[in-house]
Simulated assay, not measured.
Amino acid sequence: MKHLLLGLLLLLSFSAKGIEVTHGPWICDMDSTSVTIVWVTDKPGKAWVEIAPDGPDHFYGKARPRYYDILEGRKVLTDSVHRVHIEGLKPNTKYRYRVFTQEVAEWRYDDWVTFGKTACTDVWRGKPHEFTTFPAQSREITFLVLNDIHERAKFMKDLCKNIDFKKLDFVLLNGDMSNRLRSQQHMMEAYLDTCVSMFATHTPLFFNRGNHELRGQFADYLYRYFPTNSGKYYRLQHVAGVDFLFIDSGEDKPDEDIEYSGIVDYDQYRVEQARWLRQLREEKKVGKYPLVVFSHMPPTLENWHGPYHMQETLTPELNKMNVSVMLSGHLHAFGYQKPNEIINFPNLVNSNNTYLLCRIANGKMEVDYVGLNGKDKKHFTFLMK
């Protein structure tokens, strides 16, 4: 009888447990007038963000506008990964924000829904999270590039210990942050929770897939955590007078390789991106601003199938775009190639043990290539065309 009562008490305490924010929030896909905020709760529910311009008033000083996680006209109630896209913001403006998720207590039929407890970030004892939209006009840009961390979250934190993230416009994760994707928790422990603790609540996290993000049972779910305005991993992102082109470079071995078990089609995916690049050029969506390209795999410096296929499909289109510089990873070593008969732009390859700190101003991009404790330091200057 005693054990039965104890079991009932445990059951009641579990059922009464409220919803909790377990990961995040983090900022992605920001421009001068919009932002996307993502977070995760331990239960599905109705999610929204409250937002307020920065000021001396308290966040509770008045009702703040709500922006919901909406899919095709319906507020999403069945997901625990919440993605709220906010538009109509002012350029170069600092905002405070707070995230909410209200659990679904009961869903009887049709749209007869009863909501339960709410999880939210604290603005009473703590401060609201903050971000600043990009300016609409050109100005100096500073950003950090990390890649090939391969689940070494502590190393990443140590590597960046001297970085003031609040002085950065964004941080680019340029691929292979994981070894493979097994589950949400695996990805969070591998790097994303650490990114949130270091910078991603206030500094936008731009994500570019590497070949290892293409592997594992959870790989098909990755986009849910890094949504983009284009709906694609490959995209064109404008920041304060510079266009950043994200190339989703795919796998390094042939699609037919036994390692992939016949489930991939990256050759066709690169062909698709080549058509998209051609369309960008023909529709004159590039060319007005200096262009920087991000690609996990460099199209040269490795004699494997993936780079060779990039040379057949992607680089001929990039060569017609007046690219200022490409930043890559993948090699787990420093690499640099000047313009040549294959690529008519420089390609700087960051290693797995260094970061790139990039500053664009006065028609140039200055890049510091820095390792742990300041070792392996190199400096590069690229003219912005």
Rank of each mutant, 00 (worst) to 15 (best):
E72C: 12
E87Q: 11
K127N: 07
D110W: 13
W124V: 14
T133H: 09
D110S: 06
W48N: 03
L12K: 08
T114C: 13
V38N: 09
Y95I: 02
G61M: 13
P44H: 01
K117G: 12
G55L: 01
E72Q: 14
E50K: 10
Y60A: 06
P44N: 01
C120D: 05
Q137V: 09
I149T: 10
G88K: 12
D122F: 13
I19E: 01
K43S: 05
I86H: 11
K46L: 05
K90G: 00
W39N: 04
D69T: 03
F59L: 07
K154M: 14
T142Y: 07
E103W: 13
E87M: 11
W26F: 08
V81A: 09
Y67V: 00
Q102L: 10
V21E: 00
E130I: 11
W124A: 03
D111F: 15
F59P: 05
V104H: 11
P135R: 07
T41F: 06
K43N: 03
N147C: 07
R74W: 15
I141V: 15
L10M: 13
R108E: 09
H85N: 04
V40E: 05
M156L: 14
R108K: 12
T132S: 02
W48V: 07
I27E: 03
E151D: 13
K127C: 04
R139A: 10
E130R: 06
I149A: 04
V145C: 13
D110E: 06
S138I: 03
W107I: 04
E103A: 12
S32P: 05
G88Y: 08
D54R: 02
P128M: 04
D57R: 15
K46W: 08
P25D: 00
E20A: 10
E20G: 02
V145L: 15
T133P: 04
Y68P: 01
T121W: 12
W39Q: 04
R74A: 14
T121Y: 12
P53M: 06
S80G: 01
D54K: 06
L9E: 02
T93M: 04
I86E: 05
Y67D: 00
R83A: 08
F143S: 00
T133Y: 09
V113I: 14
G45N: 07
C28W: 07
G18C: 08
T114N: 14
V145S: 07
A52E: 02
H129C: 06
F59N: 03
K154F: 15
T36M: 12
I51D: 00
T132V: 07
I149L: 11
A105Q: 15
F131Q: 03
H150A: 06
W107D: 04
V76S: 05
Y60R: 08
V81C: 12
T118N: 01
E103S: 14
G18K: 07
T41W: 06
V38G: 03
G45A: 04
P135L: 09
E140Q: 10
S138Q: 09
R66H: 08
L146R: 01
Y97M: 07
P44R: 01
T101P: 01
G18D: 08
K117W: 08
D42M: 09
Y109C: 04
T114Y: 15
P91S: 03
R83G: 02
T121R: 10
R108W: 14
D148L: 12
T132H: 02
Y60P: 01
C120Y: 13
L89R: 06
T142F: 09
G88L: 08
